[in-house]
């Protein structure tokens, strides 16, 4: 798994990347009550909004860490947004993205580096 400083995780299988947010990010957001997902077919660049996660207090963008086309969205989250708090690093993935530039992954952290990054916050 790869991680970003924005507290996203990226799991890659072949040329498809699955993207979600980390336990830390879910904890910081508080109770998630609404999730807005990207449409399949949407083409993302790094920094584009990939999803919006809303708590009672605020709406937070999840920015795409990578380039590529959305090939699936986790529609199950729409009816069960609390999954983001319960299983952020497994069931609560937001989208699967067909990687346009796998070289982008090289700049991301592995789990050990991400844990060290969290320690420094």
């Amino acid at each position: 798994m790869h991680f970003t400083k924005d507290h996203e995780w990226i799991a890659v299988e072949g040329d498809v990347a699955t993207v979600g947010i980390t336990n830390y990010a879910a904890e910081q957001l508080g109770d998630v009550v609404f999730v807005e997902l990207p449409e399949v077919g949407k083409v993302l660049k790094p920094g584009d909004s990939l999803a919006v996660v809303e708590s009672v207090k605020a709406a937070s963008d999840v920015y795409s860490p990578i380039s590529g086309e959305v090939v699936a969205a986790n529609d199950g989250l729409t009816g069960n947004p609390e999954t983001v708090n319960q299983s952020p690093e497994s069931l609560a993935w937001f989208a699967r993205v067909k990687l346009a530039n796998p070289a982008e992954l090289a700049g991301l952290m592995d789990r050990a580096a991400y844990e060290a990054f969290l320690q420094g916050l």
């Binding site: 508080g30 109770d31 009550v33 708590s55 009672v56 207090k57």
Partner: peptide
């Protein structure tokens, strides 16, 4: 305090 460990929904 914006919230305690219980969280906004439970506090509400």
């Amino acid at each position: 305090p914006v919230q305690y460990p219980q969280g906004v929904l439970a506090e509400h």
